[in-house]
Design a protein around this nucleic acid. Structure first.
Lengths: 191, 191
DNA sequence: TACCACATGTAACTCGTTACATGATTCA
DNA sequence: TGAATCATGTAACGAGTTACATGTGGTA
């Protein structure tokens, strides 16, 4: 049982899904390729933590709709109360930032501007998703006992982090511009 | 050449380090075990991206101090201008949050309180590190052309994200308490 | 007395990615 | 006509973790 297995269980406890659907739902908080998801679903089903039903479709490929079993639920609930491993972040951009002094100010600025535009897109996407979720609930936000509560607060978290990333980039850009200005001043003084 | 290899190069371009030292410096933005770092350093040295010097010590084990070569620098600089892969985050806590509706409000609150205390510790640690860096530079922050600039802004980013995490947890706790209060009201009305 | 910091390395394993494989439908 | 969406699967490889292995000196 690895983290991905628990991630799948925690999504199936909300509602039965196909592997394909799980892959997309997973993207907010745990990225995995289909080549990792499908074999794991089979394994979890063999361990009787999941069951599935074959749904025949016309015009589309058939699919397997997985549901969690009582055993699966028990395993998940036990795991939730265990203490979690420390978060791991792997972001190539941060490596490049570490060595940013190697490139000229113009290139550095471009790197951060691109990062901002990437995160702006993600923020817009996230706002739409949150709006969609809020429309499904009369009083704005899903109730704590609702199956969507966890998903909703995770989206809010992601949104906050993306917005924070943009603010940090803007802070760095301001530092870079200050530096450029002061260098220009120097050039002026020397002419 | 994987991301970790570039991470090592980007640290060695600042100053020569031992594998042991690299492991610790790495922790801010790319986590790796020594069992992954040491063989990779050997490989990079064989590819002549790095060289090393054996430093004999008394009372402590001997160490290898690695330095980047011209070839290593060229490889790193070329990579910096390539576009980066999307960041990957793997955080077990987020999986548990997804399935939070399975546990009672008290347990949920406890989970978020523990998360806050974990992040508060990290914030304090980060503040100390930043203070240390700022003391090394007369005008408060390292210059852009300084080798410490990248490291400094990465620490600032980490700090922001950790503070944001705490704020998010506090927002969730407020939601949980609201819910508890309204349930209490209901109980009162029914008695 | 037991653990932590220093310091490096290998072996066996699990986790995760890339590539291979198939095939209908819809949209630009 | 070419790409994207739906839908599932396997094989080979690369990335990352856990465990094994060694040894001194400081400190709680």
């Amino acid at each position: 049982m690895n983290s991905l297995a628990y991630a799948l269980l925690s999504m199936l406890v909300r509602k039965p899904c196909s592997g394909y659907e799980l892959k997309h739902l997973l993207e907010v908080f745990w990225q995995a390729k289909h080549s990792q998801i499908y074999p794991l679903l089979t394994k979890l089903q063999q361990d009787s933590l999941l069951t599935y039903e074959l749904v025949e479709q016309s015009g589309k490929p058939n699919k397997k709709i997985y549901s969690i079993t009582d055993k699966g639920l028990a395993v998940l609930q036990e795991w939730i109360s265990c203490k979690s491993a420390l978060p791991v972040i792997r972001d190539e951009f941060l490596i490049k930032v570490y060595a940013i002094w190697l490139v000229d100010t113009q290139s550095a600025k471009r790197m951060f501007e691109e990062r901002i535009s990437l995160f702006r897109k993600q923020v817009n996407y996230r706002l739409n998703e949150i709006r969609g979720m809020e429309e499904e609930h009369r009083n704005g936000i899903p109730d704590i006992s609702s199956r969507s509560f966890g998903r909703y607060i995770l989206f809010q978290r992601k949104l906050r982090q993306e917005q924070e990333e943009i603010e940090w980039c803007e802070w760095v850009l301001a530092l870079l511009e200050e530096n450029q200005d002061s260098r220009l001043e120097e050039v002026k003084r020397n002419t």
